[in-house]
Simulated scan of single mutants.
Amino acid sequence: MTQALSHHYAQLGDVRLHYVTAGSGPTVVFLHGWPQTWYMWRDILPALAADYRVVAVDLRGLGDSSRPAGGYDTRTVSQDVWRLMHDELGCERFHVVAHDWGGPVAYALAAQHRRAVRSISVFDVPVPGDGAPLAAMARWHFGFHGEPDLPEVLVAGREDVYLRYFFRKGGARPDAISEDAQREYVRAYSQPGAMRAGFNYYRALPQDVADNQAFLAEGKLDMPVLCYGGGAPGVGRGMAAMESWQRVAHTVRGGVVEDAGHWIAEEQPAWVVRQLQAFLGEQGRD
């Protein structure tokens, strides 16, 4: 039976997070990337909710969460997730599934709460500050988004055009993300302050690198990690994603999804469900 999704809000200090839940059992929290929202997991959540309690979060500033002026470094964003999971929902231990910017948030979360995070499943993103040259991670829009105020001015009123460019170019095929999903993402990012909040994640990258290097100095992560990069040439991260996570965690497996680009969870949802069911099942239900 399909599990119904329910929507909630949690006031957590300076931020109000919107999140979606379903199911019961061991808890799995889902973290989205840019320019997406919790909605990117829509085809994954019902299947996993048959065996797990699933929680999909709109990260600080994005989706239908509030947009504080600051706090877009992944260390701070990860603490939003921790307060939601631990303080609001009462979860002592949980799994994390992440994509794009959700991946660095997942790393910062796990590095600060090593006993609480049972496993990490991550798609098409490396970890900033993993010891590799940052140029291996960055693409043209990293520099553009990092410029103060400029991208907000240039995309104002043109959010639809700008975001659809990424949706069209980021997959193994131009229609990798459905029209309904594109409309939902454009709705979310056309709200006042949403594009600025998204750009602020990129502006915080130097701080993320410094924080992650400090986390790594405390030792690699011990929880198991599943990591896949998109295999579409020039689009997905390929093996670079898994190689990055191998630099920051002891036990990493995965590889490349040949018939997907950057949007793996939306391009190959049935495949992602199978991988998650198998990987999470190995971790037990305690």
Rank of each mutant, 00 (worst) to 15 (best):
E184M: 11
L154E: 09
I264Y: 00
G234Q: 15
E243N: 15
G230E: 02
C227V: 04
A249K: 00
Q283P: 07
S190N: 13
Q277Y: 10
G157P: 09
L276Q: 10
Q277K: 13
F166N: 07
L226A: 07
R237H: 09
R173M: 09
W263T: 05
P206Y: 05
A241M: 07
R203I: 09
H250T: 08
E179K: 11
L221H: 00
G234R: 15
A210F: 08
H145L: 11
W245Y: 11
L163M: 05
L205E: 14
K220H: 00
A265L: 07
V225T: 01
Q191A: 13
H250V: 13
R173G: 08
V252A: 11
Q268C: 09
Q213G: 13
Q207W: 09
V161Q: 06
R187C: 14
K169V: 06
F279P: 02
D222W: 03
G234A: 11
L150Q: 08
P174L: 13
D222C: 05
K169M: 10
A278D: 12
H250A: 13
M223N: 04
P151E: 01
M242F: 11
E179F: 04
V256N: 01
P233Y: 00
G261Q: 14
L150V: 05
M223T: 05
D180W: 13
L150G: 02
V273W: 00
K169I: 10
E152M: 12
V252R: 07
R274K: 15
F144L: 04
V209G: 11
S190V: 12
D211H: 04
G236T: 08
H250M: 06
H262W: 06
V225Y: 01
G171F: 06
P174H: 06
A204E: 06
L276Y: 05
V155K: 09
M242K: 14
G230D: 03
D208H: 02
P206V: 13
V252N: 11
V186C: 15
F144T: 01
P206C: 07
D160Q: 04
E147S: 11
V161A: 07
